[in-house]
Design a protein around this nucleic acid. Sequence first.
DNA 1: CCATTAATTCATCACGTGTTGAAAAGTTTG
DNA 2: CAAACTTTTCAACACGTGATGAATTAATGG
Lengths: 211, 211
Amino acid sequence: MTTGAEQEGKRRGRRPAGADTKTALIEAARAVFTEQGYEGATVRTIARRAGVDPAMVNHWFGGKEGLFAKSVLQLPIDPSTIVSQLLEGDLDTIGERVVRTFLTVWDSTGGGHFAALVRSVASHQLAVEGLRDLFLKQIFGRIVAKVGVDNGLFRANLVASQLIGMGMVRYVTQFEPLKNTDIETVVAAVGPTIQRYFTGEITAPQPHGSA
Amino acid sequence: MTTGAEQEGKRRGRRPAGADTKTALIEAARAVFTEQGYEGATVRTIARRAGVDPAMVNHWFGGKEGLFAKSVLQLPIDPSTIVSQLLEGDLDTIGERVVRTFLTVWDSTGGGHFAALVRSVASHQLAVEGLRDLFLKQIFGRIVAKVGVDNGLFRANLVASQLIGMGMVRYVTQFEPLKNTDIETVVAAVGPTIQRYFTGEITAPQPHGSA
DNA sequence: CCATTAATTCATCACGTGTTGAAAAGTTTG
DNA sequence: CAAACTTTTCAACACGTGATGAATTAATGG
């Protein structure tokens, strides 16, 4: 007890049992990447948080990059499922449903996944394309196509802007009171916006400099 | 071409004339911070881009942090002026005016300032607070206070969410077609959203878990 | 119960970082 | 023109990074 060298947690070799190092590393990585971004997060910090040796990152994931891919870029949703669920209900209430689903999905992990994704956009071009692909092509692009209105891509852009902004404010910058506002309250406030972007009157986009 | 040692651009001592090193560094810094984020950007990269020696960063700005403050955190706007201008017109069209002003201000630097701010949010807690202070307290908070509606802070949050999201999509992830859409077209599409957040009916926020 | 395999730790490597101090060369001042 | 000052380059430092390989210990299988 005097020097602490007798603590058994530091002995060498294989650990007694179970002790799922892989999972512990993924969870610690998600937390640290979320707080620090890709460059700011260090392998040593992640390993310390997970209570294991930094070398385990290489052993299990082949390096920092691999751990990043298996933690942050692993989304908590299946886009196809989400889209077909959203398209089942009435078209007049799709705005509300989209907002409710968006918040439910990202709230389920405490916003960590969303924040991590946005934070990694900073230093990783890979993440930018991931975000674009996820929101535009796989989700809102598909919905707009099914709904069958004009200016589909422009509408998808508008929807993405409001929802990404909502995620920024709720999960990343964490403004009060939106950070802790009940989902249904937000649905009532933002739902009509999304509804209008989907089915309301939207004039066609003009390229720059034709005002 | 063999050794390249004869190029005169590498001579020591004070440069011939003018050669505004400070400005060159600030501009290079803004570009590199925008592309790489705070941690990802290195002093050496910035200096090379500006065509000067890395040591100049310390000489003129006292270090990387100082250069960051003088480039990225130096906003292209004066909040007070903006706010009083926005409050001059009719209250029924404040939504349009806010969107138009937002886009005009950030477009003026090609979106670089906004992207840099968001990118630095990733690794810099300082930038998070800067963003929160700028949008909530200094701009939308003041407007909401002057307008004098209920749930002021909640409304300010909603406005911020839509505009920050617009900036994300237009300047950071650069989705098409929003990236290149004419300002007035965007005003027509998003103006009503902001108008409703300011003066429409918005139910009061409920804390989590009371659905 | 011994040999093999898997999991973990440790010491260390090569490298890139931000920063520093001294030397060199131009500019300004008397 | 010479002294003082300012601007710039260069070499180097101390440090932290991600990664590697050998040593060590537990689990496993015949």
